[in-house]
């Protein structure tokens, strides 16, 4: 029986890291280590000497992993996956999910597949949550700006909240602009006049 595969997951966010680790554990018995520190990333990974490194494709710290390709002998050299196998479904799924894997040369095929399947599923979830979170945040920020614009109109014209909102919406429609853009313009112009 082959030895347990060791996997390093590079992820700063604790919650996200836990999600990925949980997914991997469901897929099999692996020796998993999470590295959340960006400081000395290459050194930390080299110390663990893992079979596989998983990292978010959008993480700028990916470049630090390239140092690892210089440090070791060719057969122990981690290589970025998915580059030469662009036709497989798994590769496509991984790219879409935004997961980058570094695999030690010589470790290929069936042993990696279940890990990547699990990683892809979890990265998908993580990314979906991230997108949702940023959409919620933007919606909240938009609402704040619209509230400020309403307040400006209410004070300047001595009108109620509903009327102010109606006025703002009508102005936006008349000019073919989004409500939020109209509100932003009003807030900015008012700041300038102060």
């Amino acid at each position: 029986m082959a030895k347990t595969l060791s996997i390093v997951v590079v992820e700063k966010d604790h919650e996200r890291a836990l999600m990925i680790v949980d997914g991997l554990r469901e897929a099999g018995d692996f020796d998993i280590c999470v590295i959340s520190e960006e400081v000395g990333l290459a050194r930390r990974i080299a110390e663990r000497n893992p079979d596989l490194v998983l990292i978010d494709a959008g993480n700028p710290s990916r470049d630090a992993l390239e140092d690892l390709t210089l440090a070791s002998a060719p057969m122990e050299r981690p290589v970025a996956m998915f580059v030469d196998h662009s036709d497989t479904a798994l590769t496509k799924a991984a790219i879409e999910a935004g997961v980058s894997a570094y695999v030690v040369d010589g470790l290929r095929g069936e042993r990696i597949k279940p890990i990547l399947d699990a990683a892809v599923a979890r990265f998908h979830m993580v990314h979906k949550m991230r997108v949702e979170l940023s959409e919620i945040r933007r919606a909240l920020e938009d609402r704040k700006v619209i509230d400020r614009a309403k307040g400006i109109l209410m004070r300047a014209r001595g009108i109620g909240e509903e009327e102010a909102y109606g006025l703002l919406r009508k102005a936006a429609m008349d000019q073919g602009k989004k409500l939020i853009d109209m509100a932003q313009a009003l807030v900015m112009a008012t700041d300038l006049l102060k």
Binding site: A57, G58, N59, P60, S61, R62, D63, L65, E66, A80, F82, V83, S100
Partner: peptide
């Protein structure tokens, strides 16, 4: 986001 990503 990174040179490795751009290369890929």
């Amino acid at each position: 986001p990174s040179w490795a990503a751009l290369r890929d």
